[in-house]
Design a protein around this nucleic acid. Structure first.
Lengths: 249, 249
DNA sequence: CGTATCTTTGATGCATCTCAAAAATTGTGG
DNA sequence: CCACAATTTTTGAGATGCATCAAAGATACG
């Protein structure tokens, strides 16, 4: 009771008190009033790996905040080839604001928990508060930046460099202890080898060979096929490509 | 006089009367008052191919509308490999709204004309009118969509498919007569073969071989190394990949 | 405990890169 | 307008990184 009362007096809904999205996500753009209003329409869900969150199947009627886990965004060609075009981590916002024209599919890569809102509620709130749209613009610019970074990886880098770049990217997004100057990292791969190859534009065999190579050379350790430890981050960074070669002009 | 008077009475600045950006670009989000205010701070420029518009060199202090020509956005690795991560066409808005963290370079690919504004003027106007930010969000979502489309091309497609996809994309953006169901198109390539390879993640030799192949097979014609004619668009589309193969299950 | 899925490893082939040099185009100054 | 240099495009021959195919371990799952 006391707790609840405190929560109300501070103006922040109970569910939101310890929520990432409130601190660093979309909800950080809302004042307590609006937050409370929105929270009343929200519901939390747990989603198992492989389940589709946004897709061609159903015209989605809700938006969500991603609270934990990893979501993969994929596109595919009519003949079956597919490509992962992005990954989302907490506290990203999920959902196509104004119906992107092109088809995209969002699927839980790991077990995921989300906080969902009816589409209308969000849209109405966006109209009312420019803050929210501003926050959305910022996330979109960020995603654009990441997409372009990945274009560089796909277009310029070799298979070994691609795999190293992926590990580094994951380490930075998943192991929350990884700051700028961290030496080591440890995390569970959110993707299977095949997913990885769909992300890197190669094959699962190639991905695997590069992973075993990195292991053999002591850059990473892998346990249970999933858990990855990077003892020395800078050695991993060196393998991401881009270092000017010693024997260059 | 009469003309000018008409322009004023309709509330639209003379410079803007026939401007693409006013009709379909960022300025379409402005009411006549604000448009007039912004127009007073604007200046038009002509930029020659190869000139840097946004870069690591100088911290840019202006934003622009692209009125004609093509701008290429590039990123590069420290060892010199580079990748074109996007192209911009009229009436796109040029400039990083909130300082993307990662370095990007914008360079005129063709002769370009732009309408520039002091950074401060735009930023102030964005604060005041949500419309403008909304328009910006829409463009950004669009660019994100295109970036992801290109990720698919880079990650999934073969060299022949990449080249065909590029030609199709250019045809749709440059030849304004190309609608949904147009049969033919004609345009000047805005990029050199090497630029093209930096865009497609291949080499200029490979790009060239695919272009000559398309020519040999009658899908396109090339004059003066630059001017491309596509007589039958659907034949080009067939080469972009994704068609399910006849002999598939 | 057996079936399905995922991962690992090996052998082979091909698409594309690399290197090299000729041909075409563009730009420059006399 | 022409000769010359610089750049871009085109073509060829050879090397190679990665895909493909195949099959044997692991691991998850009912």
């Amino acid at each position: 009771m006391t707790v609840r009362h405190d929560a109300i007096s501070s103006g922040i809904p109970v569910h939101c008190l310890s929520c990432q999205a409130r601190r660093r996500g979309l909800c950080s753009a809302l004042d307590p009033d609006r937050l409370a209003k929105l929270a009343r329409t929200s519901s939390r869900h747990r989603v198992e790996p492989g389940v589709e969150l946004i897709g061609d199947a159903d015209a989605l009627n809700s938006y969500s905040n991603l609270l934990s886990g990893v979501v993969k965004l994929t596109k595919s060609l009519a003949d079956g080839r597919q490509q992962i075009v992005g990954l989302q981590f907490a506290p990203d916002f999920l959902g196509q604001p104004f119906e992107a024209k092109s088809a995209i599919r969002a699927e839980a890569a790991t077990t995921v928990s989300i906080c969902s809102f009816p589409k209308g509620a969000i849209e109405k709130m966006i109209e009312q508060s420019p803050e929210l749209e501003h926050r959305l613009l910022k996330q979109t610019l960020n995603e654009l930046d990441e997409a372009r970074e990945w274009i560089v990886t796909l277009g310029c880098k070799t298979a070994p460099e691609k795999v190293a770049s992926f590990l580094l990217m994951i380490a930075r997004n998943i192991d929350s202890s990884v700051g700028r100057a961290t030496r080591s990292a440890c995390f569970d791969l959110p993707l299977t080898r095949t997913d990885l190859s769909d992300f890197l534009g190669t094959t699962n065999e190639t991905v695997n060979r590069q992973l075993t190579r990195l292991t053999r050379e002591g850059v990473i350790r892998i346990e249970n096929n999933r858990r990855v430890t990077v003892d020395n981050m800078s050695r991993l960074e060196q393998r991401c490509g881009g270092r000017p070669r010693r024997n260059s002009p």
